[in-house]
Design a binder for these strands. Structure first.
Lengths: 337, 337
DNA sequence: CTGTTAGCGCCTTCAC
DNA sequence: GTGAAGGCGCTAACAG
């Protein structure tokens, strides 16, 4: 491996001079600068970030931890985060926790060990509390995205899940649906709780009955075994005419389970959900959704993170950004009566 | 920051003993071991990977560089790569080059600087040659995925683009299509070249005419401005009845452009493409595709990379895995005549 | 303008 | 079993 000492020797200067050339610090004569630069090129020198970080106590590396890299909501978010990080000269690394607390833990371990400068994280759920406390304790700035964690104070970017649920219920009610079911993420995830709460409030608002039986709380992540979803479909109230899915994947799974039963949306069951089904504007898109500004989640979150890093942790109160979502009406809802 | 010296002091041992406990090396009495471990917990000690890597000359970090994090093909691939890396105890970091040579360059820079142990990379195209040579020169093992780069010898995982194109053309021909157009990625990307070549061969095989006018070579990445696609649609041979898209996003863009012209698949134009449109089995999927085993691309590629790292670079000849793809017939093709 | 010294946190080597 | 010395590659602080 080529080091600054190799460069120094060949250029007849000290290592310190080489270091100065690399970092553009101090005063260096133009002559030695060009000489050093030439030698660096000749020897294909690449600075060793490990050594650099060790002495500087900072890595210039930021980390984005998402819960599902195959979900278009998060990948679009990732694009936003990446753009913001690049704009400020930070390098961005990604990790995928897969809605799995253990994997999240592994990545947190990596983050701590590699002394990442900051983290943008969508926590797997309330159980992420100790992980976030760990970050806080070790002085690693972080910003939460998409999900709150009770007991954690921090900058955060959220969607308005309650309002989204209200819009969905309102839309279904308008179309004549009186019995609506909800399949949702885990109650240990704040976004799922928000959506459930909005759902219940909206039912009341529209004079619709809430039925425990019509709510399934499962996981936001994709699953191979659809039997849980199927069994739930078999036991929901028979007069149910519409289902709200807590996210895009759940909607897909409901539709697959329906298909396995020879039923189809919207004729046999109306369906709506949170989040777009594909990152890319779908052709002939079918499902009526509450679309969130995924890119903005990432971009604004990263912005806040970098601000926090630059200002120092203690600068100002925690900021909370709530991004509105938008109802996009498509063809998955049948108009009744 | 807590260091092994802090631990050592509090546990009344030397730093070396602490190091031995951490790494489970050498012989340590059970008593001091437990004592040291207790102190580590008390002080919330986290090993400094920077310092560790600096002396060990290895990071235990692998890097996955893909060209589009919003494309389900690559995210599914990423899942596969991640699973394989985890299985072997490596941490995986992701980067997204966005089909952009400059961004690719930045990530390569990061990779070299951080002394990543190995890289799984989908190059942006033939122009990635110097980047890969850089990796080689610096002794960073890498495995290519999805795309070859002329002039680079390495382990590689590829799809069979020629065969895929043949199947698509064959399928269209069977359905009575005589004039087929192709919208493809850049000719500087090997997968695009393969698909074009397969396309031409298959036309000949089916006694169909090749028309220069009916081929557009653009980029695989998504674009905001669809005017190029639209202009092309306006000038292709008027008797064209079917379009093959070189990847999923191109198919979407064609369909959007068609829609903007008041035309719709499959009635006004049949369309097929490479790669699934969504990571997740689409509900009521519409487009007939050549589906690639995205997960396997990642899993097998990562496997090869880790083998290479463990055996040492010089172990054995380069391996090449060609994954077959599968034609999945859906509803986007009209049967003619 | 340039060089010397010291140390970031850790591990290898060699003592004891 | 355990410890001391030295060095991984780099830069801050101080000299000159």
């Amino acid at each position: 491996m080529v080091t600054i000492y190799d460069i120094a020797a060949k250029a007849n200067v000290s290592a310190m001079t080489v270091s100065r050339v690399i970092n553009n610090t101090g005063r260096i004569s133009e002559k030695t600068r060009t000489k050093v630069k030439r030698v660096m090129e000749e020897l294909n020198y690449v600075p060793n970030q490990m050594a650099r970080s060790l002495v500087l106590q900072q890595t210039n590396l930021l980390f984005l931890l998402i819960t599902d890299i195959t979900n278009p909501f998060y990948t679009t978010l990732a694009r936003g985060a990446e753009d913001a990080a690049r704009k400020h000269g930070f390098r961005l690394l990604f990790g995928n926790s897969d809605e799995d607390l253990d994997k999240e833990n592994e990545y947190l371990d990596t983050i701590l060990k590699t002394r990442t400068d900051g983290v943008l994280v969508a926590p797997t759920g309330d159980a992420s509390l100790p992980h976030l406390e760990m970050l806080r304790k070790h002085g690693v700035p972080f910003v939460l995205i998409d999900r709150e964690v009770p007991g954690v104070e921090s900058d955060i970017v959220l969607g308005d899940g309650k309002e989204g649920a209200r819009q969905l219920v309102g839309h279904l009610a308008e179309r004549g649906h009186r019995r609506i079911a909800l399949i949702n993420g885990s109650p240990h995830v704040s976004s799922a709780r928000q959506r459930l709460e909005g759902f219940r409030e909206a039912l009341k608002l529209n004079d619709l009955a809430y039925s425990e039986n019509n709510v399934l709380e499962t996981s936001f992540g994709p699953r191979n075994d659809l039997s849980e979803v199927g069994a739930w479909l078999d036991r929901i109230d028979p007069d149910t005419t519409a289902i709200i899915a807590g996210n895009n994947f759940l909607a897909v799974e409901v539709m697959r389970s329906l298909a396995a039963r020879g039923r189809k949306a919207p004729d046999d069951m109306s369906i709506v959900c949170f989040d777009e089904l594909a990152s890319y504007a779908e052709v002939d898109p079918f499902v009526t959704v509450i679309s969130q500004q995924a890119y903005q989640f990432g971009y604004l979150g990263m912005q806040m993170l970098i601000d926090r890093i630059k200002e120092g942790e203690a600068a100002g109160p925690w900021k909370k950004i709530v991004l509105p979502s938008e109802l996009i009406v498509r063809r998955s809802v049948k108009t009744l009566g």
